[in-house]
Amino acid sequence: MSQTGLSGNFMILSVLYKGGLLMASQHMTVGELSSFLMYTFWVGISIAGLSSFYSELMKGFGAGARLWELLDRKPEFPLNEGQILSPDQLKGQLDFCNVSFAYPTRREAPIFQNLNLLIPAGTIMAVVGPSGSGKSSLVSLLLRLYDPDTGKSE
């Protein structure tokens, strides 16, 4: 049992003991003791609720601070917001020339070493292979979610 629960039970027992003594000396009735206990429960529950409200409020402030930090962050690559590209600008070839890449958290495990890949404009290509062969990593490089460690991608 937690310290809070133990102290709450001790307080209730103390109130019942003192209320019993007051009832025995006819300074208090059973109804008054019951009313006092009900009010004590309501106050205790309210105080416990304030405690959890405060902790939830602090969690919200922490999450809000992180959210504002993310919103204020400047992108590493310019987004060219509002710029409209014409369709002929979007037609071109993809060229990976001697690209080497490893994820920043696992530099000791390279994904690609000296990868050369040319995809001519207007063609359709599929990348197939077993799990862990680098398909998703190739797409991440194409989307510029990551930059290659060496080589060039155009």
Rank of each mutant, 00 (worst) to 15 (best):
S2E: 05
S2I: 01
T4F: 06
G5E: 12
N9Q: 06
F10K: 15
L13F: 00
Y17N: 08
Y17K: 10
K18D: 05
K18L: 09
L21Y: 00
L21F: 00
L22C: 08
M23F: 00
A24W: 02
S25Q: 14
S25C: 11
H27N: 14
H27Q: 15
M28Q: 11
M28I: 06
E32K: 15
F36D: 11
F36R: 15
L37A: 12
L37Y: 08
T40H: 15
F41Y: 06
G44C: 15
S46A: 15
A48R: 10
S51K: 12
S51W: 02
F53K: 10
Y54S: 14
S55F: 05
L57W: 09
M58W: 01
G64I: 05
A65W: 00
A65L: 03
R66Q: 07
L67F: 11
W68H: 11
E69F: 08
L70Q: 13
L70A: 14
R73G: 09
R73D: 02
K74D: 02
P75Q: 06
E76R: 12
P78N: 10
L79T: 15
N80T: 03
E81A: 15
L85T: 01
P87C: 13
P87F: 01
D88W: 03
Q89V: 06
K91F: 11
Q93A: 15
D95M: 13
F96D: 01
N98C: 04
S100M: 01
S100I: 03
F101Y: 07
P104I: 07
R106D: 07
R107D: 04
E108T: 15
E108N: 14
P110C: 11
P110W: 04
F112G: 05
Q113F: 00
Q113K: 12
Q113L: 04
N114Q: 08
L115F: 03
N116T: 01
N116D: 12
L118R: 09
I119M: 07
P120I: 09
G122H: 04
T123F: 11
M125H: 14
M125N: 03
A126F: 15
V127F: 14
V127P: 00
V128F: 04
P130A: 04
P130K: 01
S131L: 04
K135F: 01
K135M: 05
L138C: 02
R144K: 10
R144N: 10
L145K: 08
Y146I: 02
D147W: 02
D147N: 05
G151M: 07
S153M: 15
